[in-house]
Design a binder for these strands. Structure first.
Length: 936
RNA sequence: GCCCAGGUGGUGGAAUUGGUAGACACGCAGGACUUAAAAUCCUGUGGGCAGUAAUGCCCGUGUGGGUUCAAGUCCCACCCUGGGUACCA
C-alpha cells in the first residue's frame, strides 16, 4: 500500500477531476460552444474527419487531429472569429453489419450504442464542439438528403460543351431537336440517331440511351463473391484468393451496379487542385490518381475477322516496334477471336485470372503470365500479322483494355516477349542519351520507315497526324481515374430510391418521387446474404415487392455516399426543407481548415470534391471546392503484445526461448503486460479459458512478451481508451501530452512514457497562481525580464499555431513557466495574458484560474494577447565563430555592425588568433544575426 | 510492383527552412528535504579518446556518393518503416 501514488495530496494542489467536471457541466449549461449562423464576426470553419463509431470505442489515436483542430478553433474564437466546429458520425459500414452477422444484434442498435460511448469520450476530452449540430449518416433525417442528392445526380448529365453538369432535361431537349449529334456528353457511347430517331424511340429505349449519360448510372461490374459464405466480399476481406473468414475460395462475379460518373469531372478535379492550400504530397497523390496522359488511340484490324479493336498508347512513335498485341482477359473480343486450337489454353488462363485481384495482377513483375489467342492483327503500315495475346497486366478498366506491346521500349512488354519468345525490334537509337532507360522518351527513330531520323517527340507528333489522316487513329487524352462504384450488396447503408418493373433488371430503373424520402431500411431476420450475391434485403419480400407490382432496388449505397457532403449539413443541420439552406451556405461557404488522415487522400476527398462540383454547377453551393486548407494528421499506432505458442501444444515460451521451438505468435491484451513487456500469467489465465490450462515456460524467473507496432484495433487487443488516461491525469494533461508528442503529421506508437512531463508542467503552472489553496497573484509591476518572457512566448505560440506546430507551442509554454518559476513571478500583469494564451490547449485549468482571478466571463471568450516587439529588442548577439565550417568559439558582438567592424573585432580575438595562426585568411563570411565563418 | 510520406541520443522530439545538431520533456545517475516513502527541488546525461581536474580533440542526423565557405536541411543512388492502391473507414 505504501507504494500507491498519494492521489489525495496530489489533488489538494491541483484537483483536475473536480475542476474538469465542474466546467464541463457549466459550459454545457451556458451553451458556451453554441454557434450562431447570424454574426457580425468573420466566419471560420474548422472541420475534423468524422469517425466511424467502431465497437472498440474511440481510442487514443483519434484525438491527435481532434485536439489540434480544437486548439485551433479556440484560438480563432479568441482572435475574434465566429467559428463553426462540429462533430458527427460516419455511421454506415461493414463492421456493424459483420457484428450483426455474428451476434444477431441490429446494426442500428450497436451503432447507436457505439455513438453514445464515442460522444461521452469526446466530451471528456473537452472539445468545443457545438453538439446541437451533430449529424449521423445513418439517421433517416440525414440520409433523406443523401438519397435526394443521388436523385439529383441521376437526373443529371455532364455537358462537355458548357463543361458543367446539367439537368437531364437539357439533354433530352437536344436529342429531340437534333439527335445524338446535337449533344456532347460525358460517357455517352451508343449508336447514333437523328431527331426523328429519338422521337420515335420507345420510352424504354430512350431510358437506355440516357443511362449512358447520367451522373449516377448503372453498368456491369465485377465483385468478389464467396459461394461458401453466400456473400459478396470487400477487397480487404479477400486474402490470397481466399476469404479471410473461413479461407473459402472466392471468384469474381459480374453484376449490374450503380456508378458515380467521377470521370466527367476529371479535368476540373485536376485543375482546381492548384489553388488549394493542401499539402503538396496530397495534391500529388490526387493528380497521380486522376492520371492524365496524352497519347493516341489506334484501331487495328483483326485478320480473318470483320472486326477491329482500339488501343491507347502514349508512345505512338513506337508502332514499328509493336511485335504483339495484348488484350485484357476480360476484353469483349477474346471469346470471338480465340482459335479452336487455343481455346482450351485461353479458358484455363481465364480461370486463373478470375481468382486474381487487380492489385496482384499489376504488382506481379517477377512472373509474367499470358496466353496466345491464335488470332493476328494487321500492322497498319507493314501489313504484317501481329499476334494477339491476353495477359493479366492489361486491365479492362484502364484505357481501352488493349495495348500494342513494344518490347524494345517498355519493361513489362519486354519481360513478356522474353518469356514467350516474341521478337524484339530495336526502333530507337538512344546512343545520344547515355543513361536513358528503356521507357524514357528519348532518342532517334530507326527501323521505323518514314519516322527514321526523327527525335521521339517529333515522331509522336508525326505519327499521330498520319494516323488521323489515315482515319485509323487520333490524338487522345486518357485518364486513369475510373467512375466510382456506388453499389454495395449489403444491408447497412442508404437504400436507393429506385424501383424496377421487373426483378431481373431487364427494365430500366425508375426513381421514387422526392416526397417518399427518406426511404428507410426494412427490418431483416438475418444479415447474411442470399446465394445469388444480392444483399440480405432481397429476402424481405414484402419490402422488395410493391403493391403496384414494382420491385425495389436491393443494393445500398457505399460508405462514401454520406461522407461526401456531411460538412454542408453541419451548417444547417435541422433544415427540413433542403439539404442546406441558402442563407447558411452563403454565410459559411466552405471549410477553412480540414484535418484528417492521409488514408483518405484519394477516396473520400476526391468523392467529396466531385459532389461539391455537381452542387456548384447547380448553384447550390457558392464555392468550387469544399476544403480550402487541408492538414494531415498522423496515426497514433497501437503497441501490441504477443506471446509465442509452440505449434501443436498448449504451451507458451518466454520471448528469449522462441527460436528454440516452432512457434506461432498470438496477440494478447496489453493490460496483462507491464512496462517491461513482462506478462502477468495469472491475469491472462483468468481472461480466457484456453489459457487456463496452458503451460508457460519462464526465462530467468519471468515471462517476456514480444511487441509489435501496428494500427489500433480491437482485434489486436492493443487499444488504449482515452478515458483511462483522463481519469488518471486529467483531460488538460492528456491534451497537452498528445500535442507534445510531436508534429501532428507524424505517426507514432502510443506510450504513456513522458506524460508525467506535461502533468508536472500543469502543476508548476498552477503553483504560479495558487499555493496552499491561496491565490498568490499580485498586482506588482512586471520587470523587463518577465515581460520579455511573456512576449516572446506570445510571439512563438501565435506563430507556431499558424502552422499547427502545437508541439513547439507546448515546449514554449514549458520554457515560459520554468523562467517565471525561477523568477518567482506571481504578477497578474504577466499571468493573466498567459492564461488566455494557454486556454486553447488546457481549457479547464485555465478557466478555473481565470475565475479565481476574479474575472466575470469565460477565459474562452477573452481577448487574445498580442506581443509587443519593444520588450524583445536585443542589442548584442553572441556569434558562433566557425573556422573552416567548424564551430570553435563564441564572441559577443553588437547587432548591426558592418562586416569590416565585425571582421576587425573577431580577428583581434586571441582565441581566433590561435586557430588561424600561420594560415592565410581566404574568406571572412559574416551573416548578420546568425554566424561568422572564417576560411583559412 | 506503382503513388505518397518518414528515418536525428536509451526514448518522444527541437533546429528561425542552407548558418552553434540534440531546445523542451521522458528515462537514468547522483544529491537535498523525510524515520521512510510519495511529492517537490538541485546537478549531470550523444559516443569515443586524453587528462587528477578545469578542459581539449576526434566522430556523429538510415547507407554510399556529390554540391557549398557552411548540409539533418539541397542533388544522385540505395536500404528500411508507415499510408494508399479503386468494396475497411
Amino acid at each position: 500500500m505504501a507504494s500507491m501514488p498519494n492521489k489525495l495530496e496530489f489533488n489538494m494542489e491541483y484537483n483536475f477531476t473536480e475542476i474538469e467536471a465542474t466546467w464541463r457541466q457549466k459550459w454545457q449549461e451556458n451553451e458556451l460552444y453554441k454557434v450562431s449562423n447570424n454574426s457580425d464576426k468573420p466566419k471560420y470553419y474548422v472541420l475534423d474527419m468524422f469517425p466511424y463509431p467502431s465497437g472498440a470505442g474511440l481510442h487514443v489515436g483519434h484525438p491527435l487531429g481532434y485536439i489540434a483542430s480544437d486548439i485551433y478553433s479556440r484560438y480563432k474564437r479568441l482572435k475574434g472569429f465566429n467559428v463553426l466546429h462540429p462533430m458527427g458520425f460516419d455511421a454506415f459500414g461493414l463492421p456493424a453489419e459483420q457484428y450483426a452477422i455474428e451476434t444477431g444484434q441490429h446494426p442500428r442498435t450497436s451503432t447507436e450504442k457505439n455513438i453514445g460511448y464515442f460522444k461521452e469520450q469526446l466530451q471528456n476530452i473537452g472539445f468545443s464542439y457545438d453538439w446541437s449540430r451533430e449529424v449521423s449518416t445513418c439517421d433517416p433525417e440525414y440520409f433523406k438528403w443523401t438519397q435526394w442528392a443521388f436523385l439529383q445526380m441521376f437526373h443529371a448529365w455532364y455537358n462537355q460543351e458548357t463543361d458543367q453538369s446539367e439537368p437531364i432535361d437539357t439533354l433530352i431537349a437536344k436529342f429531340a431537336q437534333g439527335g445524338s449529334a446535337a449533344a456532347k456528353g460525358a460517357g455517352g457511347e451508343h449508336e447514333a440517331f437523328d431527331a426523328d430517331g429519338w422521337n420515335d424511340m420507345s420510352p424504354s429505349d430512350q431510358q437506355r440511351i440516357l443511362m449512358n449519360y447520367r451522373l449516377m448510372f448503372q453498368a456491369e461490374s465485377e465483385v468478389w463473391f464467396c459461394e461458401a459464405l453466400g456473400t459478396v466480399l470487400a477487397n480487404d476481406e479477400v486474402k490470397d484468393g481466399l476469404s479471410e473468414r473461413g479461407g473459402h475460395p472466392v471468384e469474381k462475379k459480374k453484376l449490374r451496379q450503380w456508378f458515380l460518373r467521377t470521370t466527367a469531372f476529371a479535368e476540373r478535379l485536376l485543375g482546381d487542385l492548384d489553388d488549394l492550400n493542401w499539402p503538396e504530397s496530397m495534391k500529388e497523390m490526387q493528380r497521380n490518381w486522376i492520371g492524365k496522359s496524352y497519347g493516341a488511340s489506334i484501331h487495328f484490324d483483326i485478320i480473318g475477322h470483320d472486326k477491329q479493336f482500339e488501343i491507347f498508347t502514349t508512345r505512338a512513335d513506337t508502332i514499328f516496334g509493336a511485335t504483339f498485341m495484348v488484350l485484357a482477359p476480360e476484353h469483349e473480343l477474346v471469346a470471338e477471336i480465340t482459335t479452336p486450337e487455343q481455346k482450351e489454353k485461353i479458358e484455363t488462363y481465364l480461370d486463373y485470372v478470375r481468382k486474381r485481384s487487380e492489385r496482384d495482377r499489376l504488382s506481379e513483375v517477377k512472373v509474367v503470365t499470358g496466353e496466345f489467342t491464335g488470332a493476328y492483327a494487321k500492322h497498319p503500315f507493314s501489313g504484317e500479322p501481329v499476334p494477339i495475346w491476353i495477359a493479366e497486366y492489361v486491365l479492362a478498366s484502364y484505357g481501352t483494355g488493349a495495348i500494342m506491346a513494344v518490347p524494345s521500349d517498355d519493361d513489362r512488354d519486354n519481360a513478356f516477349a522474353e518469356k514467350f519468345n516474341i521478337p524484339i525490334v530495336e526502333i530507337i537509337d538512344k546512343s545520344k542519351y547515355p543513361g536513358a532507360g528503356r521507357s524514357d522518351k528519348l532518342g532517334i527513330m530507326i527501323n521505323s520507315d518514314f519516322l527514321d531520323g526523327m527525335e521521339v517527340p517529333e515522331a509522336i507528333q508525326h505519327i499521330t497526324s498520319k494516323l488521323e489522316d489515315m482515319g485509323i487513329g487520333k490524338g487522345k487524352i486518357n485518364y486513369r481515374l475510373r467512375d466510382a462504384g456506388f453499389s454495395r450488396q449489403r444491408y447497412w447503408g442508404e437504400p436507393f430510391p429506385i424501383v424496377y418493373d421487373s426483378e431481373d433488371l431487364s427494365e430500366m430503373p425508375k426513381t421514387l418521387p422526392e416526397t417518399e424520402l427518406p426511404l428507410r431500411l426494412p427490418e431483416v431476420e438475418s444479415y447474411s446474404q442470399s446465394p445469388d450475391g444480392r444483399s440480405p434485403i432481397a429476402a424481405i419480400r414484402d419490402w422488395v415487392e410493391l403493391p403496384n407490382g414494382q420491385y425495389r432496388e436491393t443494393d445500398t449505397m457505399p460508405g462514401y455516399a454520406g461522407s461526401s457532403w456531411y460538412f454542408l449539413r453541419y451548417m444547417d443541420p435541422q433544415n427540413k426543407g433542403t439539404f442546406v439552406g441558402q442563407d447558411a451556405i452563403n454565410y459559411w461557404k466552405d471549410v477553412d481548415l480540414y484535418i484528417g488522415g492521409t488514408e483518405h487522400a484519394v477516396g473520400h476527398l476526391l468523392y467529396s470534391r466531385t459532389w461539391h462540383k455537381y452542387f456548384y454547377d447547380q448553384g447550390l453551393v457558392p464555392t468550387k471546392e469544399p476544403f480550402q486548407r487541408l492538414v494531415n494528421q498522423g496515426m497514433i499506432q497501437g503497441r501490441s503484445n504477443l506471446i509465442y505458442r509452440i505449434k501443436g501444444e498448449n504451451k507458451f515460451v518466454s520471448l528469449e526461448l522462441k527460436d528454440q521451438h516452432d512457434c506461432s505468435p498470438i496477440h494478447i491484451p496489453i493490460k496483462f503486460v507491464d512496462g517491461k513487456d513482462m506478462l502477468d500469467i495469472e491475469a491472462l489465465k483468468g481472461w480466457r479459458s484456453d489459457f487456463e490450462e496452458a503451460d508457460f515456460v519462464l526465462h530467468e524467473g519471468g515471462f517476456k512478451c514480444d511487441f509489435d507496432v501496428e494500427k489500433m484495433s480491437k482485434r489486436l487487443y492493443n487499444v488504449t481508451d482515452p478515458n483511462d488516461v483522463i481519469s488518471k491525469y486529467g483531460a488538460d494533461t492528456f491534451r497537452l501530452y498528445i500535442m507534445f508528442l510531436g508534429p501532428i503529421e507524424d505517426s507514432k506508437p502510443w506510450s504513456t512514457k513522458g506524460i508525467e512531463g506535461t502533468a508536472k508542467f500543469l502543476k508548476k503552472f498552477w503553483r504560479l497562481f495558487v499555493q496552499d489553496e491561496q491565490l498568490i497573484v499580485t498586482d506588482d509591476k512586471a520587470s523587463p525580464e518577465e515581460l520579455k518572457t511573456l512576449h516572446k512566448t506570445i510571439k512563438k505560440v501565435d506563430h507556431d499555431l499558424s502552422t499547427l506546430g502545437m508541439n513547439t507551442c507546448v515546449s514554449a509554454f514549458m520554457v515560459c513557466v520554468n523562467e517565471l518559476t525561477a523568477a518567482k513571478c506571481h504578477k497578474r500583469e504577466i499571468l493573466e495574458p498567459l492564461l488566455v494564451l494557454l486556454a486553447p490547449f488546457a481549457p479547464f485549468v485555465t478557466e478555473e484560474l481565470y475565475q479565481r482571478l476574479g474575472n466575470e466571463g469565460s477565459v474562452h471568450t477573452a481577448v487574445y494577447p498580442e506581443h509587443d516587439e519593444q520588450y524583445l529588442k536585443e542589442d548584442a548577439y553572441e556569434y558562433p565563430i566557425s573556422i573552416n565550417g567548424k564551430m570553435r568559439i563564441k564572441i559577443n558582438l553588437p547587432l548591426g555592425i558592418d562586416q569590416a567592424a565585425a571582421q576587425e573585432s573577431v580577428l583581434a580575438n586571441e582565441m581566433v588568433q590561435k586557430w588561424i595562426e600561420g594560415k592565410d585568411l581566404r574568406k571572412f563570411i559574416y551573416v548578420p544575426g546568425r554566424i561568422i565563418n572564417i576560411v583559412v
